[in-house]
Simulated scan of single mutants.
Amino acid sequence: MIAVPADSLPSETLTIPSRVVDPALARPLTIKASYYPAPATTLAAAPLVVFNHGSTGQGAERGRIPRHAMLRYESQARYFHARGFAFLAPMRRGRGESEGDYLESYAWDALKLAEGLQHALDDVDAVVEFMRRRPEIDGRRILVAGHSRGGLLSVAYAGRHPAGVIGSISFAGGWIAERGMMEDFNREVFVRAGAGAETPSLWLYAENDRHHSMATIRRWHDGYTGAGGNAELYLFGPIEDDEGHQLLERPGLWQSAMDAFLHQLGFFW
């Protein structure tokens, strides 16, 4: 049943089977996701945004966000809802109310980072394909978007599934904070994504992002576009909250850029 809290968008929690079967349960582990249906005025099947969360904190402590907390991204859902989109915010395995272990390593080890990214990509693919089969969703018009780890994850997913989505959006995207040689891990993911991407991408960063310098972000963008990707990069001025990493909470800054990107994809309202 769809719950309608005061001053909130209509929403419900979906249970989505992951790609991983738990032998003890004899079924796939489940992914929980906050779902905001498209406006009731939508006449045909609606476009969908799948919004991917960031790391949620350090792995050893199960994250600075409580283990069972669901990140619902309602303010971002409002922006897309007003433009006719359905919006889904899944919690990957081991986070929120999703089952399983959190396997997205924080170790300064490229192999472990790559394994964690693959776990995350598997979860995104399970979610996208589940939603594609829903009758109220237009499976030909799915966007992947996200914040921090979820931003890089969305760009990487679009590069690996070029026929599956119509574009990707990255808010402050990066899998691991800039530190020594690990910065190269992010760039290599973006280069690989650019080589496979067939749809546009939108990258949004604040100049004072606490995890990534502007020089590094430009280097990632150069790598992505040099490999063949099409990405529009916006670098906004410094913002105060969380040293720039929470740009997604400032729609007044990015709304015009997002509107232009959606128009580029053929959406008008």
Rank of each mutant, 00 (worst) to 15 (best):
Ala6Pro: 14
Asp7Ala: 15
Ser8Cys: 14
Ser8Tyr: 02
Leu9Trp: 01
Val20Ile: 13
Val21Phe: 09
Ala24Ile: 07
Ala26His: 07
Ala45Phe: 07
Ala46Leu: 10
Leu48His: 04
Leu48Arg: 01
Val49Cys: 08
Val50Leu: 12
Asn52Met: 13
Ser55Gln: 12
Ser55Met: 11
Gly59Pro: 00
Ala60Tyr: 10
Arg62Gly: 15
Leu71Thr: 11
Gln76Leu: 14
Met91Gly: 03
Arg92Leu: 13
Gly94Met: 07
Gly94Phe: 06
Leu103Ser: 08
Glu104Asn: 12
Ala120Pro: 00
Leu121Ala: 05
Val124Arg: 02
Asp125Asn: 13
Val128Asn: 02
Arg134Ala: 10
Pro135His: 09
Arg141Phe: 08
Gly151Asp: 06
Ala156Asn: 09
Arg160Ala: 13
Phe171Thr: 03
Ala172Tyr: 02
Glu178Thr: 03
Glu178Gly: 07
Arg179Glu: 13
Phe185Met: 01
Arg187Phe: 01
Pro200Met: 09
Glu207Leu: 06
Asp209Leu: 04
Met214Gln: 14
Arg219Phe: 03
Thr225Tyr: 00
Asn230Val: 12
Ala231Met: 06
Phe236Asn: 05
Glu243Arg: 08
Glu243Gly: 04
His245Lys: 07
Gln246Met: 14
Leu247Ala: 07
Leu247Phe: 00
Glu249Trp: 04
Trp254Asn: 03
Gln264Arg: 15
Gly266Ser: 08
